[in-house]
Design a protein around this nucleic acid. Sequence first.
DNA 1: GCACCTCTATTGTCTGAGTAATCGAGGCGC
DNA 2: GCGCCTCGATTACTCAGACAATAGAGGTGC
Lengths: 238, 238
Amino acid sequence: MIEKTSAGAAPRIHTSVARDLGVAIVSGQYQPGAVLPGEIEFSAQLKVSRSAYREAVRMLAAKGLVESRTKTGTRVSERSRWNMLDPEVLAWAFVNEPPEPFVRSLFEMRLIVEPAAAALAAVRRTEPQLARMGQALEGMGRHGLSTPEGRQADQDFHSLILLATGNEPLASLSSTITAAVRWTTAFKYRKNAVPRDPLDDHGAVFAAIAAGDAAQAREAMTALVSLALEDTNTVLGD
Amino acid sequence: MIEKTSAGAAPRIHTSVARDLGVAIVSGQYQPGAVLPGEIEFSAQLKVSRSAYREAVRMLAAKGLVESRTKTGTRVSERSRWNMLDPEVLAWAFVNEPPEPFVRSLFEMRLIVEPAAAALAAVRRTEPQLARMGQALEGMGRHGLSTPEGRQADQDFHSLILLATGNEPLASLSSTITAAVRWTTAFKYRKNAVPRDPLDDHGAVFAAIAAGDAAQAREAMTALVSLALEDTNTVLGD
DNA sequence: GCACCTCTATTGTCTGAGTAATCGAGGCGC
DNA sequence: GCGCCTCGATTACTCAGACAATAGAGGTGC
């Protein structure tokens, strides 16, 4: 839950190279099918050793962004092979302003997954999980979404619901969805379009989950995400 | 769609080391929190160079399975950080018989995602996509699920539906879900529990999508996955 | 007992060399 | 001319060895 992001992260070269290349790829700077310069040339150009460069490429390959073959070289994979659900890939997609259809797609996915997850969580959540949801909700109310603490609490809330489904693959979507929540929220605030206070919506979801009412939880979560999508649409000028 | 798996794949050392380690981790041979032996010792033990070993570790780190820190060493991450939706991780999970709750979780996820995807596909699919779905369906009927060709057609069918949603993040679940379809089907047949012919179920989904009937598509897909889950339950002895 | 310092073990980074696989060109037979 | 085969060059892959940087452990002084 409490992800320590920037603090203790020692800057490792292969990681930053992977990040830079990854951002360049997902933002379209390298089109799918394009071949990267050879290892020796490219690593020299980036002012890093071949080993560090190769490790970076391995990371990108593990996320489906590139494929390396002897003689052919390293080429950018087709978009359909990209692992868009990988939290890092998603984060890279939001470094530059992502295309509007992509943001809508994320909300569409949330509208599919989160209501169902809320329904499952309503009947499966344990007491400690419920307590932590309450704490997150309280944190949202206390700090507000304009502060990092409040946003963290928001993400925690959504994450906890997915966790409470007791479904591990579904919980893996947690990092993806919280990333989506994080970036779209930041996006909205960057545009100075501060929407309604979403605390009531979250409260309704929490109440339904606390009551163990699956149908109500599904409905409340649907409303929550729909309203968030509306807000985003307003910002995007729909 | 047509994934060339084993054919032209040259065996690269870092890939096979990553696979072996990945399988060992997801099958619980290395518990979360456990630290792997040091690079030098472990790479020597595996009879590979340190560079190859490090590249393998970078791949595992990219999938969230391990975390490396100086001095601390490389340790297996908490399960909640694992990228279970990564196609390779999922494949690794099925190398050894995965725990039963995990298989159920996958079906639960399919039950959430696929009906919604079918509904979207019904209203968004293009004619070429519909044609390819028809071909896949025909391929299933012609070869049957006992042949690799028939199973491939089955996976293609499900994959095409996710693709036809026009939702990129959702389409990323395609490889995950087809992997789930692949392994559970193989699992069932390995147990010699050949179930009903699922062709009619698929036909109903196809018809609804062809007709552009979203509600009907959702319903038919729900029925399809539910029946598949029932079959699996029978095999698992529920 | 506590704060600080040193020391050591471990990953991170770099360099340079040699290996293996693959694609394309050129030669050969028909 | 056309198809097949051989050969060579290009590229990623693998290996070995060295040094740097960092974060813990353990000792030291107060």
